[in-house]
């Protein structure tokens, strides 16, 4: 089934202070489509993890916040785009416990568990794009 975009907004995230306003924006959209509190919390936590990764490894970038629909289900899609160094081995980065930074290494695999759909595309030297969708009831 195709995914329709109902609404789209872009937010640049280039410094740490952009994180909280960005999270608030995601929350606004999630509230607007009537997403429940638990799913909202999962989505915003996932967004927070990804945006932190983007700042830390990709030196910031752009995030697209979209309201999407598939059939009768509405959801929020977030696309994180950076022009950072890229990830040489994506499957390794998706493993629980793996981290090149000094974090806990839950970033990507933990984040994937919080959302309904997760996709990562990365080209070394060009950048990384992470796309997540959280369905309203998913």
């Amino acid at each position: 089934m195709t995914i329709l975009i109902l609404n789209k907004e872009m937010m640049p995230v280039v410094k740490e202070q952009d994180v909280v306003p960005f999270r608030n924006r995601v929350k606004e959209y999630a509230t607007k489509i009537g997403m429940g509190l638990v799913n909202q919390t999962k989505l915003i936590t996932a967004a927070s993890e990804l945006v932190r990764n983007m700042l830390k490894y990709g030196k910031g970038g752009k995030v697209y916040i979209e309201v999407v629909s598939k059939g009768r289900e509405n959801g929020i899609r977030l696309i994180f785009e950076d022009k950072g160094p890229g990830i040489p081995d994506v499957s390794l980065a998706m493993k629980d416990g793996f981290s090149t930074g000094k974090s806990l290494g839950l970033g990507l695999p933990g984040t994937r568990r919080l959302v309904s759909e997760f996709d990562i595309q990365s080209v070394v030297g060009e950048g990384t794009t992470v796309t997540v969708i959280k369905w309203k009831n998913g």
Partner: peptide
């Protein structure tokens, strides 16, 4: 909701 999210995140 925070407790649920933390455990699913693996924290």
């Amino acid at each position: 909701a925070v407790a649920i999210t933390l455990i699913e995140l693996g924290l």
